[in-house]
Simulated scan of single mutants.
Amino acid sequence: MHTEDDLIGTPLTPDLLRGALEVERTERGLLPHRLPAWARAQCGDGQLAMAESQPSGVRLVFRTRATTIELDTLPTKRVYVGAPPGPDGVYDLLVDGRPGGRAEVSGGNVLTIDMATSAAESEPGPVGTARFTGLPDRLKDVEVWLPHDETTELVALRTDAPVEPLADPGGPVWLHHGSSISQGSNARNPTGIWPAVAARLGGVQLVNLGLGGSALLDPFTARTMREAPADLISLKIGINLVNADLMRLRAFGPAVHGFLDTVREGHPTAPLLVVSPVHCPIHEETPGPCLPDLGAMGAGQVRFLAAGDPAEQSSGKLTLSVIRQELSRLVEQRAAEDPNLYYLDGRELYGPADFAQLPLPDQLHPDAETHRRMGERFAALAFGEGGLLRRGVLHGDSP
């Protein structure tokens, strides 16, 4: 067994990372971000700051003969007042695209959140180590997928053979934006979130802008997507607008148009797929806000409920059914002049029949099995033969 002194230290540099749109140099090492600093500066929301710094879809990628890999990190664990502690974040290792190991890092900072008041307190903690051993002794491509639900500061990388970055991304770049479901809430591991499942099956390189609680048609997110390199783009719109009770129908349509206009400024002809919400019974016909179920939390469970009144739809409050109808109409209208724009009803990924078989454990987020099912379905619908995003670029045409 190797000791730390036997291993080679490799400087952590941004060229070893994929899936991050910006990498911050800290006192300890590197902190991947999924929104650039200028975008973060335009919103002081703590939920967004937490979500974008959680490296969903971000991975270290390199080539090596190493049989042992150690990665020191400083994670930030979340603890909710009144709820049992969640499991540690998971690090997935892929060797030449196949599962090669799994690790967790204990310790780290602790962020305690009171869902009743939205207050949060942070307590510093120690650096920990994710270790992978017994890897095949040959030249291979290695990916270390970082936890999708823990802010992760990268401190040190050690191996028993030299490491070199990979220049070739290995397929078209798929830029996706969505809510906590796209970020991976309630998935067990980072390669198990539905966009990662879909990317693997579709042979594309994921850049995941699934931002928990923050898929809100923010202009800075649209500008971020406009500037980000991408061959294929998808936008999953709806659930956060309802559960945040953020806007009314009058504002929704123009906001969608504005978001799409901005993305198209940077990617005028890339295949672009608009995806409406998956099935979520509490908000199908009931507007937000969505609130934590304090009674369930008293019993040690995290659950959510819809606090709006269905009658408020007549005054312009949004529900999932209203959003689906409006998104379908808007995409049909725009597609007359934008032949690379497509629409997908989110219930094709997870619908009422799926809910009957695999209900949402907290009434809002899918479990691990449902993430796998959604990823497989998206891969078939978007990247499969005749798929909505396969047209054009995946046949070798220019994006």
Rank of each mutant, 00 (worst) to 15 (best):
T262P: 09
T262Y: 01
V263W: 07
V263R: 03
E265K: 10
G266A: 09
H267R: 05
H267Q: 09
T269L: 05
A270M: 01
P271L: 06
L272E: 01
L272I: 01
L272D: 00
L273R: 03
V274D: 00
V275T: 00
S276Y: 05
P277A: 00
P277M: 04
P277G: 02
H279R: 04
H279G: 03
H279V: 03
C280K: 10
C280G: 12
P281K: 04
P281A: 03
I282C: 10
H283C: 13
H283G: 02
T286K: 02
G288L: 04
C290F: 06
L291S: 06
D293Q: 03
D293G: 07
G295D: 10
G295R: 12
M297T: 00
G298V: 01
G298E: 05
G298N: 03
G300F: 08
G300S: 10
Q301I: 12
Q301P: 05
V302W: 09
F304K: 08
F304T: 06
A307Y: 11
A307L: 13
G308Q: 12
D309G: 08
D309R: 09
E312S: 12
Q313G: 14
S314L: 15
S315P: 08
S315A: 14
G316H: 00
K317C: 06
L318G: 04
T319A: 02
L320G: 01
L320Y: 08
L320S: 09
S321P: 02
S321A: 14
S321N: 15
S321K: 11
V322S: 11
V322F: 11
V322Q: 12
I323F: 07
I323T: 05
I323H: 06
I323P: 01
R324H: 03
R324M: 12
R324D: 07
Q325E: 14
E326S: 10
E326I: 08
L330K: 06
L330Q: 07
L330I: 09
E332R: 14
E332A: 15
Q333V: 15
Q333I: 15
R334M: 07
A335F: 04
A336F: 10
A336S: 15
E337Y: 13
E337W: 13
E337Q: 15
P339C: 08
Y343P: 01
L344S: 11
D345L: 03
D345Y: 02
G346T: 11
G346W: 13
E348M: 14
L349T: 06
Y350C: 05
G351H: 01
G351F: 06
P352G: 08
F355N: 14
A356H: 13
A356K: 15
A356L: 14
Q357F: 14
Q357T: 15
Q357M: 14
P359H: 11
L360A: 02
L360T: 03
L360Y: 00
D362Q: 04
D362E: 08
Q363P: 11
L364Y: 01
P366E: 09
D367E: 11
A368R: 07
E369T: 13
E369R: 13
E369Y: 11
T370W: 07
T370K: 09
H371D: 05
H371F: 02
H371V: 00
R372T: 11
R372K: 02
R373N: 10
G375M: 00
